[in-house]
Amino acid sequence: KFNKERVIAIGEIMRLPNLNSLQVVAFINSLRDDPSQSANLLAEAKKLNDAQAP
C-alpha cells in the first residue's frame, strides 16, 4: 500500500511548478525514508508550492 502511495506522491511532487530542485529532492528523500508519511509529505509539498507561487 505505502509503495503505491509513495510512487503517486513522488509523481505529484515532481509536477509542482513552484518548488525548486532542492525542495523536490528533499521531499522525495523524506518519502523514501518513511513511505507511510506519503499523504502528509504530499500535503506539505503542495502547501509550500502554493506559498511560493508568483
Rank of each mutant, 00 (worst) to 15 (best):
L42Y: 04
D34K: 08
D50Q: 10
A53L: 06
A53K: 11
K46A: 04
N20M: 07
I10D: 01
I10F: 04
Q23Y: 02
A39T: 11
F2R: 11
V24R: 06
M14L: 09
I28W: 06
N40T: 12
I10H: 03
N18M: 03
I28G: 01
S21C: 15
F27W: 02
L22S: 10
A39E: 07
L16V: 00
D33S: 10
E12Q: 13
S30N: 07
A26R: 11
A9D: 02
D33F: 13
S36N: 06
E12T: 13
L31D: 00
L31K: 00
A9N: 02
F2Y: 09
P35H: 05
R32N: 15
L16C: 02
N29L: 15
E44D: 04
F27A: 02
A45W: 03
A45P: 01
D34L: 05
L42A: 03
L22C: 13
F27Y: 06
A26D: 05
F2A: 14
L31V: 08
A45H: 01
P35Y: 07
L19H: 00
L31F: 04
P35T: 06
N40Q: 11
I13V: 03
Q37E: 07
V24G: 01
N40L: 12
S21P: 11
E44G: 05
A43G: 06
K4W: 15
S38K: 04
I13A: 01
S38C: 08
I28F: 05
G11T: 08
S36Q: 07
L22R: 12
E5P: 03
E44T: 09
D33A: 13
L48G: 01
Q52D: 02
I28R: 02
M14C: 14
A53I: 07
S36W: 07
L16K: 00
I10Q: 07
L22E: 09
N49H: 02
L22A: 10
A45C: 02
P35D: 06
N20I: 06
S36V: 06
I8R: 12
I13Y: 01
A53N: 08
A53M: 08
N18H: 12
F27I: 05
N18Y: 13
A26G: 08
P17F: 10
V25M: 13
L41C: 07
G11D: 05
P54M: 12
L22P: 05
Q52M: 11
N29A: 13
A26E: 06
I10K: 03
L41R: 06
P35L: 06
V7I: 11
A39N: 10
D34Y: 09
N3I: 09
K1A: 14
I13E: 00
N20K: 11
E5N: 07
F27S: 00
K47Q: 10
R15C: 10
D50I: 09
V24T: 05
S36Y: 09
S36F: 09
D50H: 09
A9L: 09
V24A: 04
D50T: 08
N40Y: 13
A51Y: 10
N20A: 07
F2P: 13
L16G: 01
Q37S: 05
K1P: 13
K46M: 07
D33V: 13
K4E: 15
L41T: 10
V25D: 05
Q52V: 04
N29S: 13
S38I: 15
L19C: 02
R6T: 15
V25S: 10
A53Y: 06
N40M: 12
F2G: 12
A51C: 10
S30T: 10
A9K: 03
K4F: 03
K4H: 08
D34M: 08
L31R: 00
G11H: 08
F2L: 14
A43C: 10
L16I: 01
A45E: 00
K47Y: 06
P35R: 04
N20G: 06
L42H: 02
Q23E: 02
P54D: 07
R32A: 09
N40H: 12
E5D: 13
E44L: 12
S30F: 13
S38T: 08
N18P: 00
K46P: 01
L31W: 05
N18G: 03
L22W: 12
L48T: 03
A51N: 07
I8K: 11
I28Y: 03
G11L: 09
P54F: 13
A51L: 09
S21Y: 12
S21G: 08
I8D: 03
L41A: 08
N49T: 01
Q52W: 04
K1E: 15
D33G: 07
R15D: 03
D33M: 12
Q23H: 02
R6I: 15
D34I: 04
I8L: 11
K47D: 06
D50N: 10
K1L: 05
I28A: 03
N29F: 15
R15H: 05
P17G: 06
S21Q: 08
N40C: 10
S38Q: 05
V25I: 13
K1Q: 15
P35N: 05
K47L: 05
E44A: 13
L41G: 01
P35A: 13
F27V: 02
L42D: 00
A9F: 15
S36M: 08
F27G: 00
I10P: 01
L16E: 00
V24P: 00
A53G: 10
I28M: 12
A45M: 02
I13P: 00
V25Q: 13
A43N: 08
M14K: 07
A26V: 11
R6W: 15
I13L: 07
P54W: 11
I8P: 02
E5R: 04
Q23R: 01
N3L: 06
N20T: 13
K1C: 15
K1N: 15
K47T: 11
K46C: 05
A26W: 13
I10Y: 04
D33Y: 11
L48E: 03
P54G: 11
N20F: 12
P17S: 09
N18C: 05
F2M: 12
A26F: 14
M14N: 04
F2V: 12
L16H: 02
V24C: 06
F2I: 14
S30G: 05
P17M: 11
Q37P: 03
N29Y: 09
V25R: 14
K4Y: 08
N18D: 02
V24Q: 05
I28T: 03
K47H: 07
S36T: 07
S36C: 10
I13W: 01
V7L: 13
S21A: 11
D50P: 01
K4M: 04
R32W: 15
F27N: 00
M14Y: 06
A45F: 03
Q52F: 04
I10M: 12
A39L: 13
D50E: 11
D34T: 06
N29P: 00
I8H: 06
N18W: 13
A26K: 08
K4V: 05
V7F: 14
E12D: 06
M14T: 04
S30C: 09
E44Q: 14
I10G: 02
D50L: 12
I8M: 11
M14G: 04
L41M: 10
A53E: 07
E12W: 12
A43V: 07
K47N: 07
K1R: 12
A26M: 12
E5Y: 09
F2S: 13
R6F: 15
L41D: 01
A9E: 03
S38L: 12
R6P: 13
N18F: 11
I28H: 02
D34E: 06
R15K: 08
Q37C: 06
R15Q: 06
D34P: 02
N3P: 06
V24L: 08
I8G: 03
K4P: 15
Q23I: 04
S36L: 08
S21F: 13
L31S: 02
E44H: 08
L42K: 03
K47W: 09
V25N: 08
N3F: 09
S36R: 08
D50W: 11
S36D: 04
E12G: 07
L22I: 10
D34S: 08
D34W: 08
P17N: 06
